[in-house]
């Protein structure tokens, strides 16, 4: 593996509600090298987005507790001052969210919105920032960039707005792009366009990318490695192909087979019984145990770490792992 760009250790996040602190995510460990593409997959309540937002401390600070370490090139993001954090956000690590209509300011035109981060992080002046904004629109393949740069968000289609968001994100040539469900609000054909764009940008700019999605298919087309999360924990980490060849965790297995198949006329779909436990009602031992077809007697009360599974894989389950060593 290349140099570690990002090293997340024992990340745990909880939120304050009027019923006290509620754990959202725990035991998150992963590393990311330069140029890596990591996919984080999970269903609602799995904690995938919470994890992503914590990397940049984007939660409301008053009501959030983040523990563990997020080492960005050796420095702990969780310990940075506000100023240092500001420096990091946007310039070294950038983010793209699901719904561009809520992340773009409706009263500013595209040039101003792209220019903002250029002015903040690179001290560019108006005219230079504008030129760069047009360049960036070209990069994200918005046709007729010199004219569209004066448009306001409502004049763009959903796909174009997401392209603008990506242009803003890559404006300062970040080392890492975190894309949180970037195509969920888009049509299938537009989704394919956006993913193609991200793929090209990653190659051209040499960025690392963390792609967060509920769609295992989408992630598998893009990422090299996948981290599957369930009920607030990573439960399997594996190279994409290996994961699909033999999912080691019964949940990953269930998730893969539950994707409706485009290649056969199945009349009954395989399902995972039950539903995801709420954060306050997570089982004590293995959190998937109550739904697991392979559960054994001690699954419900043994808390497992991620176990080494060979081939760069790790899994929080003993089903396919004989030599039970925790990942270092």
């Amino acid at each position: 593996m290349t140099d570690k760009l990002l090293d997340v250790r024992d990340l745990a996040v909880s939120f304050r509600t009027d019923r006290g602190w509620i754990p959202a995510v725990d035991s998150v460990n992963f590393t990311l090298g330069e140029g890596d593409a990591l996919g984080i997959v999970g269903e609602s309540g799995s904690g995938k987005s919470v994890t992503a937002l914590s990397l940049l401390r984007l939660h409301a600070e008053r009501n959030t507790r983040i523990e563990g370490q997020v080492l960005w090139r050796g420095r702990d993001v969780l310990k940075l001052s506000r100023g240092q954090l500001q420096q990091l956000r946007g310039s070294e690590i950038a983010m793209v969210f699901q719904d561009p209509i809520h992340t773009l300011n409706p009263v500013l035109n595209i040039a101003d919105q792209i220019g903002e981060s250029l002015r903040i992080h690179q001290g560019m002046t108006g005219a230079a920032a504008r030129r760069r904004a047009i360049e960036l629109l070209d990069t994200v393949r918005i046709p007729d960039a010199a004219r569209r740069v004066n448009d306001y968000p409502h004049q763009l289609s959903g796909g174009q707005r997401q392209r603008v968001m990506i242009a803003i994100a890559i404006a300062c040539q970040p080392k890492l792009l975190i894309a949180d469900e970037p195509t969920t609000a888009l049509d299938v054909t537009v989704q394919a366009q956006i993913m193609e764009l991200l793929r090209q940008l990653r190659a051209d700019l040499g960025m690392s990318v963390i792609l967060i999605s509920h769609d295992l298919g989408l992630v598998s087309e893009f990422a090299d490695r996948v981290m599957v999360m369930y009920a607030g924990q990573p439960i399997e980490m594996a190279p994409v192909d290996a994961l699909f060849d033999l999912p080691l965790h019964p949940y990953s297995d269930g998730l893969i087979s539950a994707i409706p198949d485009l290649d056969s006329d199945l009349d009954r779909l395989p399902t995972i019984a039950g539903s995801i436990p709420e954060p306050t009602r997570r089982p004590a031992g293995c959190r998937f145990a109550p739904r697991c077809p392979h559960q054994k007697a001690d699954c419900r009360n043994t808390v497992l770490p991620m176990l080494e599974a060979g081939g760069g894989r790790a899994v929080r389950c003993t089903l396919h792992v004989t030599d039970k060593r925790a990942v270092a």
Binding site: A273, G274, S275, R281
Partner: peptide, 12 residues
């Protein structure tokens, strides 16, 4: 009928 006992039912 498999999933009905989870989520809501499990706790109560």
């Amino acid at each position: 009928m498999t999933d009905a006992t989870h989520g809501v039912g499990a706790a109560t």
